[in-house]
Design a protein around this nucleic acid. Structure first.
Lengths: 223, 223
DNA sequence: ACCTGAACACCGTTCAAGT
DNA sequence: ACCTGAACACCGTTCAAGT
């Protein structure tokens, strides 16, 4: 995390880029005006000349990463494209775990701010191409979008634990064992699925969920 | 927001209760040690005697509200009970909009902390009673859980805008109009669903989504 | 127009001192 | 055992002054 020389002039883009690097390295607490000015070799006032405040910077960082994840090849199969977008977002959140909390916070601040409509648009366009009734488009797109963020967030949270040098198989075993030892009166379900957790593949499991929702969407009027 | 007289002794429960009231009134920025000590007519050190830090306090507040929302009557129909739990969580987030961001933040801090397993257990138990293959339980429960939080969060975010004295019908009209005026090259889908948004009922729309996922879950092996 | 960096208000946490 | 409140370290934001 060595501070860079200030070769080029400061710009909104360079600031956002530096912010993303700091967020990736240390999560949300890694991004402060102190760490940011050190990395950019400048003063806090210089940042404020290009960016109105920290929330706007976080919003920009989020939008920048999401935009990168939403670009998908046209394959002619809306179902495949939805799976590709879902996997792209899943991997973006995997690489930038701070994204999932940020998306939630930003949603609560401005419901239809920059990130949400783009994601809705990208997925919704393919949903509408599935050939299901128009009345179901909004609900279907919501279900897919929320599942993607929720599942990806859960996965990113798990992945963080593994960052601490913990071995993956070891972690899953430990989690499964812990679940199996839960009180059977209070947590019978958690106990029963402990075995499944032990050796599942995150991406495969995630895509199975996407398929489950796609099945629900097309169950009554196949496209 | 008048400070209370300190009639009874301080306790973790009273502190959590006060925290929830402050969060409900002004969101996350409404809860600081200053507002909390004022309301409880005490000093910051007194709080720290009962609670280790602010994060733990937020976790307790979240767990307390979630626990209240998860109690559901046994009806004998797992499908109905899942709908009831979903609606209960939806309404809890509606009443306490800070919940959705909190759940995301806490998930990223400790993946299987107090709130998540209880919700998983409560929904998962009913999913397993649907009569679908055991291999699908975990994915199905994930899909439901994530949809519930995502949709409820979106709704709570919308509701906040309405708190500013804005009329609901007016807001939906404004949103729909804004979407209809989006660039048709960039946002054709958002434009196409603008009409649906204008007069939908939030709860009904939400439950339709739950049904969609339940359909996906049971599509291949009906229970 | 763009940048510096000291100053300000605010916040979570600690701790020596009290009862 | 439980509480007080001053002190500390840190953080986002502002702004007069510089180039």
């Amino acid at each position: 995390m060595a501070p860079r020389t200030r070769a080029e002039a400061l710009s909104r883009d360079r600031i956002v880029e530096a912010a993303i690097e700091l967020l990736d390295a240390d999560g949300e607490r890694g991004l402060t005006f102190k760490t940011l000015t050190e990395r950019l070799a400048t003063g806090s006032g210089a940042i404020y000349w290009h960016v109105p405040n920290k929330n706007a910077l976080l919003a920009d960082a989020t939008a920048s990463v999401i935009a990168g994840a939403l670009t998908v090849q046209d394959t002619g199969s809306p179902r495949d494209e939805i799976r590709a977008i879902a996997l792209g977002l899943f991997e973006a959140i995997d690489r930038h775990p701070w994204l999932s909390a940020q998306l939630a916070v930003q949603l609560s601040r401005s419901p239809w701010g920059s990130a949400t409509p783009r994601i809705f648009e990208s997925i919704g366009r393919r949903v509408s191409a599935l050939g299901v009734p128009e009345a179901t488009w909004f609900t279907a797109t919501s279900a897919l979008t929320h599942y993607i963020f929720g599942a990806a967030g859960q996965n990113a949270a798990n992945a963080r634990v593994l960052d601490g040098g913990v071995d993956r198989a070891e972690f899953l075993h430990a989690a499964a064992n812990a679940w199996e030892e839960l009180d059977s009166g209070e947590f019978p379900f958690m106990k029963s699925i402990a075995g499944q957790v032990r050796e599942h593949d995150d991406r495969e499991q995630f895509l199975t969920g996407v398929d489950l929702i796609l099945t629900g969407i097309t169950a009554r009027s196949p496209g």
